[in-house]
Nucleic acid binder design. Structure first.
Lengths: 238, 238
DNA sequence: ATATTTTACTTGTTAATACAAGTTAAATAT
DNA sequence: ATATTTAACTTGTATTAACAAGTAAAATAT
């Protein structure tokens, strides 16, 4: 459904090593093959290999030690919502179930939106949806998502049940999340939130306001996420 | 107090550009000089310059656009505790005041510590301190810090009032924070927390549990931070 | 046997070079 | 005047080369 794209070598190696780490080919504490060995194995030069390793290190999959090597780092067992990708990919698609509260609809942007909007965004209107995500049958996230209606034909009729929003944007519209920023607060659960997250009124919940940048410089993705952190913590690296 | 160390060129340029951005020499939205111009200006080659820019981009100071250039990104006005450095450097030393609740003392590690400890750490004992940090006279952070007593002579007698812990570790012991991980939760304020942060009982506070790695592979820095997020948000990038 | 030195690894830094790909504005053709 | 093409930028990818610096184990001297 998407025309093939040339994938850079460093990116290819990054994906391979990342998958191997997640699959347990390289386990926590293991030494990765040395940079020179990786060069031989994958037919690349050292700067290219180092680019891959640099990204793996940045994402927290490995730790590099001069004179020693690259060591696979202990992976977060918690929900890695603070990592680059969306909630679904971070925790593994298997366990996380999604329920749609409000199907994607086209509407006006809220009057006092949490982030400043460009003129183009305001004029385009807003695609809105609400979801609740469950981990082992416990409601963990109540997501409210907003994005501008920019060249996204038929998005409001797509099936979101089994695919993450990120997957749909990538597969059908070739849109990828590049980076983003977020604000985090602790707030008391209001009536609506406590209902969706099965909590008592005024119980503390984590509130994340996120703005995500995509490979389309005009298109941003916004979400307001309420997290039940009673049993699970939000995990992050820096 | 510390023997001079050779600073790599890419690191030097990173620090220069970072300072210029923070000082407003390059303002939000500005184009940085092109990579080739930076090469000429600072007498480096492009791979070296690109290493600096790559780090600036990672830290959120700039956004790179192929064919266009590197654009200074809007800086977080909130408290950037989620960034690499400590709370003090993130918000600027000027406005953040620190009060010592418990001066650094040597003690046993708590029985159920929030992170697993190595044998070496357990044997070394634990340096413990508590601080409250104010932003514009509002208490924002209640920090409890733990670190192993490894080659840190006289640390319990140092003056922490006007210097950050990170500064003292860097200047006197040549220890730098390299990376870390954290868990984030929303919890109700207990009696102790509400007293220090001037909040009501059971009011939601952000709870961060952080483990930081240093350039000494045996030494880790732990902190349990309670944040009053009524007025300020915790800000992060990904 | 023990301590020291050497050696062979590892990653870190830096240079010089080439071409690909995206952006923008100037030059050109209509 | 307007639309198109071209050219001159920008960053992205990749190679080859060399030496520095840190680590660990083997070789050597005591």
């Amino acid at each position: 459904m998407v025309s093939p794209k040339i994938i850079p070598q460093h990116r290819r190696l990054y994906e391979i090593l990342r998958k191997h780490i997640l699959d347990g080919v390289y386990k926590e504490g293991d030494l990765l093959p040395s940079e020179n060995e990786l060069c031989q194995l994958y037919g690349m030069t050292r700067p290219t290999v180092r680019q891959s390793l640099s990204r793996l290190s940045n994402d927290g999959y490995i730790r590099k030690h001069q004179g020693k090597g690259s060591i696979v780092h202990n992976l977060p067992k918690e929900i890695g919502i603070l990592s680059v990708s969306g909630t679904t990919s971070a925790v593994g698609d298997r366990k996380l179930k999604t329920t749609i509260i409000v199907k994607p609809v086209l509407m006006q942007w809220p009057a006092d939106f949490m982030f400043p909007l460009t003129q183009l965004e305001k004029e385009s209107g807003c695609i809105y949806m609400e979801r609740v995500r469950f981990l082992e049958d416990i409601p963990i996230f109540y997501d409210i998502t907003y994005l501008a209606n920019l060249n996204l034909p038929r998005i409001t009729v797509r099936q979101f049940e089994n695919k993450s929003l990120f997957q749909i944007l990538r597969n059908y519209y070739r849109i990828e999340i590049k980076s983003g920023e977020q604000r985090i607060k602790a707030i008391p659960a209001n009536k609506k939130i406590s209902r969706f997250l099965h909590l008592k009124n005024d119980q503390p919940v984590l509130h994340l306001e996120r703005k995500m940048e995509t490979n389309n410089p005009d298109l941003f993705l916004y979400s307001s996420i309420f997290c039940n952190t009673e049993k699970y913590s939000i995990f992050g690296r820096f």
